[in-house]
């Protein structure tokens, strides 16, 4: 039995210890916003926050998650300034990679509220988009960085969790 917190809700699941967090989220908790893209830590579609840090859930065994705090795309609440910026820029095409992109972008901005273009490119290089939405993702991150949420005093990872 593994116990952990997802989006501020406590969960306990009884699965094999090598089960990746991704499949616990999707198959056991029915949190379907986190996507399966490669299963090998190569594409970023499955990105979630583990204690505030962007993490590839497809290669993270549930045994490593015990007692830790996870935030998924559902946990951002839909009105997060990064999500709002995504909507304003009409970023998604097929949309399948976008949960992972957004989770990576939020983690990037939480750590660095005014990233340079190179910071953005490096911070997002682990997330593949086969639809080629990169130019819009970059623009959306730049706009989000201008939002009051980031330009004010927000620098702590903790605040994100408390907001949702």
């Amino acid at each position: 039995m593994f116990e952990f917190t997802v989006n501020d809700n406590a969960y306990a699941v009884d699965v094999e210890p090598d089960t990746p967090l991704l499949w616990v989220l999707r198959d056991h908790l029915q949190l379907l916003g986190t996507k399966f893209g490669c299963g090998a830590g190569l594409c970023g579609a499955c990105t979630v926050h583990l204690d505030g840090t962007a993490t590839r859930s497809c290669v993270l065994p549930i045994s490593a998650v015990a007692d830790r705090r996870i935030t998924t795309i559902e946990g951002l609440g839909g009105e997060h300034p990064v999500q709002q910026s995504w909507i304003d820029h009409s970023v998604p095409q097929c949309g399948y990679c976008q949960s992972g992109q957004i989770m990576s972008a939020v983690a990037l901005l939480d750590g660095n509220p005014s990233p340079s273009e190179t910071d953005i490119e490096q911070g997002m290089a682990g997330n593949i988009c086969r639809c080629g939405t990169y130019p819009r993702i970059k623009a959306a991150i730049q706009s989000a960085a201008q939002a009051e949420y980031y330009s004010a005093s927000h620098t702590s990872n903790e605040t994100v969790g408390d907001d949702v």
Partner: peptide
């Protein structure tokens, strides 16, 4: 604006 942009930015698209 694209009609599917919200659902695809919130994780709700299925």
């Amino acid at each position: 604006p694209r009609l599917d942009r919200v659902a695809k930015s919130t994780g709700e698209a299925r």
